[in-house]
Amino acid sequence: MDIIVLTKRVPVTQEEELKIAPDGTSVDLSRVPFRMNDWDNYAVEEAVRLCEKQGGVITGVSIGDMESDEVLRRAIAMGAKDGCLIESQGVVNDPFTRALLLKGFIEKENLSFNMIFGGVQAEDDQFGVTCGILAAMLGLPFASMVIGIDEIQNDAIILRRELEGGIQERIKIKMPCVLSIQSGINEPRYVSIMGIRKASKVERKYFKADKYLDGGAGSLIDVIRWFYPPKKEGAVILQGELEDTCKQLLGILKEKGVLQ
């Protein structure tokens, strides 16, 4: 079972106040720390668990600048055999371009695989489509939101996808295939600093991105501006008598879709 796992280095922004440049063309991430995308962490863990059971090798692949080497080291520390960095100039905002790059890379470098894993989405852009686009371009079957792998058969795999409202769908999908892995499918192991130091001794491979685009489509979509969403200032205090406030509360629950 050879698995390629796509990993991305993302800024950790949950707690940060982000600043947008006055002209709206960029978001200042210079003081924000980075780490492996959380969903990819689950994807690597799932791949490692599968290969521990079934045998096979895992290759981590990442697109980004040299700093992204960090997530490959982590993937290796978790159990990947090696890591490939597709070095790109600047950030690739369009997931289509990202998928195109990956397709070119996988085909040109003749990476062999039974499955390609990625996280459901990246914490930074929250697009959630790179794996699906890649699958379609490679002509492979695809499933997203994979929350459980139930059985591996000869040429197929039985898995569960997470749907809404606590419901899952069990499907059978032929290999080779592309799966995007949902958080919560497993509990990713802790990777210690010593583990990462050891992993640093495993050589990673570096490739230049421009080789794989075939002069083809640059971006199909462009970010033209960044802006702040409407700001919330503390809680909206519901006003009125007990009955009114409770009615408003039920209204909010309905609006949020947790009450029928």
Binding site: F127, G128, I133, L134
Partner: peptide
């Protein structure tokens, strides 16, 4: 923008080579 909606959107984009914007 749901589990299946996004799954299909991504595949459609790849299949027909179309730009995609989610959420």
């Amino acid at each position: 923008h749901s589990s299946s909606g996004t799954e299909c959107a991504s595949y459609i984009a790849g299949y027909f080579k179309l730009p995609v914007i989610t959420d």
